[in-house]
Every structure is written in C-alpha cells, then in structure tokens.
Design a protein around this nucleic acid. Structure first.
Lengths: 216, 216
DNA sequence: GATGCTATTGAGTGTGCGACCAATAAGCAA
DNA sequence: TTGCTTATTGGTCGCACACTCAATAGCATC
C-alpha cells in the first residue's frame, strides 16, 4: 500500500530555506524554549527531514544562537522601536513599560532567562546574548538621549540610567516562570519608579501619558 | 586478572545514603548546574551504581528539586544568617551586599538563573523555587523588621522593601554568565543604593560599616 | 525533452538520559 | 555461626539527541 507518507520534495533556494529555518527556530525558541530548538523539532515544524537542518546548520549550537538573536531582535523592535515617528520619548518609554507589564512580555522574559542560563554552556549563544544586551542598552540609551535633548528627561549619564532601568526589568522578569500574584504594588511599579527617578520625571509622568500608536 | 574494578559494596543506612546523595547533588547543582544532576553523574560522584540513585529517588526530577533546595538554603544561611548574634542589622545587611558583590556569589546567581529557567518545564522544581523565594523574602524582611525596631532602618513596609532589594539583586545577578566588566559604577551599586533609599539610610551607611564576623 | 547541478532525503552511528528489575551480598540479629 | 532482610548491583530497554554521507530527485537551463 505504500501508506508511508512520502511527501513530494519541495526544493527552495538556499537563502529562502535558511530564512525559513531561522524563522521557525526563532518562533520555537520564543514559545517553547531554546532547548526545543533541535534538528528534529525544527525539521518537523517545516515538514522536512532533520538532515536538511544539519545541512544548513552543521552545528546545532549555531542555530540555537541564531534563533535567540532573531527572536530577541524582533521583540526589542516591537517593544522599543528604533524609529519613533509617532510620539515623544516620554510616550515611547511609557509604552515600553506598559508592554513590559503585559502578559506577552512573559514570553520575552522567559526567553532571556533561558538564554542567560544556556549561555553558561554554549559559547556561541553567550556571544549572541552579550550582543543583544548591548543592543538593548543602546536602544534605551538612545531614547533617553533623545528625551534629554528635547528637555523631557534630565540625567547626566543616559547610559547608566538605561542600564539601571534594564536591570530592574531583568529582576522583575526573573520570576516569569513563577507565581507573582501577591507582589506588593511598590514592586510591580519598580521599573516605572526607577525610570521616573533616574530621568528626573514627576511621579506618574510615565503612567498617565497617552501612548503612541505603533503599527505592527 | 579480573581487572574489572569490582569494588566492595558498602552498605549504609537509608538515611545516611540518602543524605549523602542529596549532598552530592547539591554540590553538583551549585558548581556544574542542575542539568548535571543526573542519575549517572551523582552515582559516579559517590562511586555507586546509577540504579542506587534511582532506588532513593524513583523520579529524577525529585532529586534535582531537592538538590536545588538544599543548595539554595545553604547559600541563604551563609549570606544572611537566621541567627545574628554578632552584629547589628546594618552590619549584617552590609555584609550581605559585600558578599553579593564577590566572586562566589556568581555561583549562586547561576544556580538561581538555572532553577528559574528549568522550573519552566519541571513542576516539582518550580514549587521548590517558589518556596526558596519566599524563604529569601522572609529572611530579609526579618532583618529589616529587626532594624526598624532598633531604629536603624525606617520604612513602613518592610516586606516591600525586602522584595525590592531582592529584585535588584536578581537583576544584577541575571548576568552572571555574561561579561559585566564595563558596568557603570552606579549600576554596580544599585543594590546598596536601593537599600539605603528604601530603608531611610544615609548614603554610604551600608558600605562604610565594619562587618560582623560570622563563623563557618 | 534531455541534462546537470545541488537541495533534499533516508539510513545509520554513537552518546546520554531515565526507568525498570532480578540477582547478589552486606551486615545485623538470632 | 547461620539466616534473613534489604541495600546495592548489573544489565537491559526505549527514547531523544547531534552528526555523517551516499543516494535521490526537483528544477532551471539548454
């Protein structure tokens, strides 16, 4: 009967196939975790054979690192866009904190915890994590600098302010896999509080602001 | 020749053997990571057969969770003792931050990242992590309450203050597997700064204090 | 419609893992 | 010393993983 599902091969250009693989890997990384980014899992995701994934990524570690980088970059862009034509720095910062309090942000927190842990054992991933950390620092520093120029923020070390805010967000995100239901209000607000303090803003300046509308 | 290394069996009481296993697992967890706490690895550590570990921990997940709990409890006790006969709350808090800046603290940070990540997939571990988190919160809250009673600290919500300090420490510790060499000074000092602010202390109160001597 | 390049498959290797269980022997008690 | 309880072994099973490579077939080109 030959009931074995011998599907028709679909032959794509290396560029297209590679992109497809990385995209699938990033999706799996974000939703299921970096250890689920295996040759078999990604192959199944794309309905191809595991050997094909090996062909494009002779070392699986490279695929994992790439998956993280793509996922992290995508999330950063959506949380804190590089181009900000639709509002003021205060508005974009407020939007950032609003998003970081939402449910979807848990996936990102989980991804970062995942990557930071896994990079203990995987040098290639470790480099990518450091790279993405720098990118986050730079992005937020840029926003802060813009705000300072416009007279919205006040700080004499935008980068230190940026990193401090991100450290607080990391600390809050560290519990993404645990229950956080009975967290004191002061804790939930820590990121905003830190930002308002470090940027010389009035209390509430970041929570009582209309958010810019950003297209997907 | 019978060169096969058939060692003599050593038969111990279940309590002793179990304790030995947990101790070894905790050590491996702290130094090598929780995913290295495998039946085979711990058996090798104790020069016994893997089957024996299975005998005491029919589910390997339980051993991993136990290893984390024991390691975390031990570290908490050494960083922030429950009994504090050798100094004032200010001194013990200062000692805590001094230790948390040291090299050895990286192992603890790594362990926590590891556990927080792994608890994504392992319910038993997740419960233990939540438990240890509560223990840390409680311990620091207790110290703060004592300090408030003695008039050393000033806060109207000791628990919120404790958690905020711990969130900052988590945020700083999140990078334990990454390079942190060019961190701004303001960032390195964040934990102390947060504590001084939340506890109504003068700047420097926690870094210019003689530390209590604590026996090992 | 035939040809050539190469993307893709299929099959196999070796490793490490948790789990299971009958056989064995350590060491205590009689 | 003998016997018994049970801690411990040794071996096995099934699974998932990364990695390798010769064979195959899609598809662009002629």
């Amino acid at each position: 009967m030959s009931s074995s599902v011998e599907r028709k091969r679909i032959r794509k250009t290396p560029e297209a196939r590679r992109a497809e693989i990385v995209e699938a890997a990033a999706r799996v990384a974000l939703t299921e975790g970096l250890e689920c980014v295996t040759l078999r899992r990604i192959a199944e995701e794309l309905s191809v054979r595991p050997g094909l994934i090996s062909h494009y990524f002779p070392s699986a570690e490279d695929l994992v690192a790439e998956a993280f980088a793509v996922a992290a970059t995508g999330e950063l862009d959506s949380l804190l866009p590089a181009e900000r034509p639709h509002g003021t720095p205060v508005q974009y910062l407020a939007r950032y904190f609003a998003l970081s309090a939402g449910e979807a942000y848990d996936d990102i927190s989980r991804l970062w915890i995942n990557a930071r842990h896994l990079s203990r054992y995987r040098p290639v991933l470790r480099d990518r994590v450091a790279e993405q950390e720098l990118a986050s620092d730079d992005r937020l520093e840029g926003l802060i600098r813009e705000g300072v120029e416009r007279g919205e923020f006040r700080t004499d070390d935008p980068r230190a302010a940026a990193i401090q805010i991100l450290v607080v967000l990391d600390g809050l995100g560290a519990h993404a896999n645990t229950d956080r239901s009975n967290r004191p209000e002061a804790v939930t607000r820590m990121a905003v509080t830190t930002a308002e303090r470090e940027l010389g803003l009035a209390a509430g300046a970041l929570t009582e602001t209309p958010l810019p509308v950003v297209a997907d």
